[in-house]
Design a protein around this nucleic acid. Structure first.
Lengths: 199, 199
DNA sequence: GAACACGAGAACCAACAGAGAACATTGCGA
DNA sequence: TCGCAATGTTCTCTGTTGGTTCTCGTGTTC
């Protein structure tokens, strides 16, 4: 649905307002700011914005005008840093955002890491690739996971969980699998997508 | 259908206007800008542009003059079919569209293919991957291209162009390079991005 | 002269916008 | 707990804006 001039104006105002104040305005306050004298008229506009999906329905709650969560689709996913087998994740200082198409991610919270090194090259994950990780603490056998080992090093490996031991396989025949006590392995996420740019 | 002078002028104005303002103009505003005094006359031109497919029909909506189809970016890129080394591209019946983040494509026209087979597996391109191809007839040595060989088979290979011969390398040590006469190879596009979903 | 592009202007009416009243609900303070 | 003020909801009424549809007139082109 398309917004009218007034609706757009109100929406813009609400967005800037949200940046400066913790609480949404009341209808009366909004009226005053917009030069209106009728709450009823304003309410009509607000309802239109709710119908258009920009505001959450304000079910009789006071100060109930809340902006709907900004589509993460537009913002993209945060690029948290670089993952290199055997070292902690090297975080980027300013969390950058990367656009990720929906079919490379899941509905659950995800983030992006940049891959450093060739430990997964036989699985088609190369140095410089971006991997999309679903934030999750458990994995199924055979999934590729971001794992924190002994609280110090982070790697991207394929996981196999057996009673009493957890094995992390690199996909590179030059490297060896790690066999660990389940307590030593903490799963931080599961690989759900991968991207590479050749430009 | 061909546009008249006035129609072209109006369309041009609307395009520049769209770059500067969030809302389309009203008929009256447009009149003023164009030096017209009759809304009715202008309306006739607008309707002609709607009929010609340049504007969306403005069903009595205020400020409803909107340019049509500026959204190939939003729509994504067309998924044209599946590419398997040694066979023609198997076109999908209904051109599907796939969202592709900007860093995986170029400014020039691009399309997406699905990869079948393992001929490029050592370059990290696996069976089932999506590849983003920039439409282009020439390539630099070392680029991975979509090449039509002898007018019959299409492959995804790394290219090397020497005087008098063109070599197409698969990235799979089990397969052999093709050495061809330059006339036999027609480049259809160059690889600029790659995506894989693990879901 | 017929067809066409272009423009003026009037009349019409649906979309948009606002005022204000009445009512319902919530939440706070006495 | 009660009562009141604050706030959200629903109405009706009103006026304005702006898209739509006409008719008519004037050049221009083939």
């Amino acid at each position: 649905m398309r917004l009218t001039r007034r609706q757009q104006e109100i929406l813009d105002f609400l967005r800037t307002h949200a940046e400066h104040f913790a609480h949404p305005p009341t209808l009366d306050e909004l009226c005053a700011r917009l030069g209106l004298r009728s709450r009823g008229s304003l309410h009509k506009h607000v309802q239109a914005l709710v119908a258009a999906g920009f505001l959450e329905p304000l079910d009789r709650q006071h100060r109930g005008i809340r902006l709907v969560a900004e589509e993460p689709a537009e913002l993209g996913l945060p690029l948290l840093g670089t993952i290199a087998a055997g070292r902690p994740i090297e975080a980027v200082p300013q969390p950058e955002f990367l656009q990720v198409p929906p079919h490379l991610r899941t509905e659950r919270p995800c983030y992006v890491l940049r891959v450093r090194g060739d430990s997964m090259c036989e699985a088609g994950i190369l140095d410089g690739d971006y991997v999309v990780i679903e934030q999750r603490e458990t994995a199924r056998d055979g999934e590729i996971v971001v794992a924190l080992v002994r609280g110090e090093e982070v790697t991207l490996k394929r996981i196999l969980q057996q009673p009493g031991r957890t094995i992390l396989y690199p996909e590179n025949s030059a490297l060896e699998a790690m066999e660990l006590d389940p307590d030593e392995v903490q799963i931080q996420g599961v690989l759900v997508g991968q991207m590479r740019s050749y430009r």
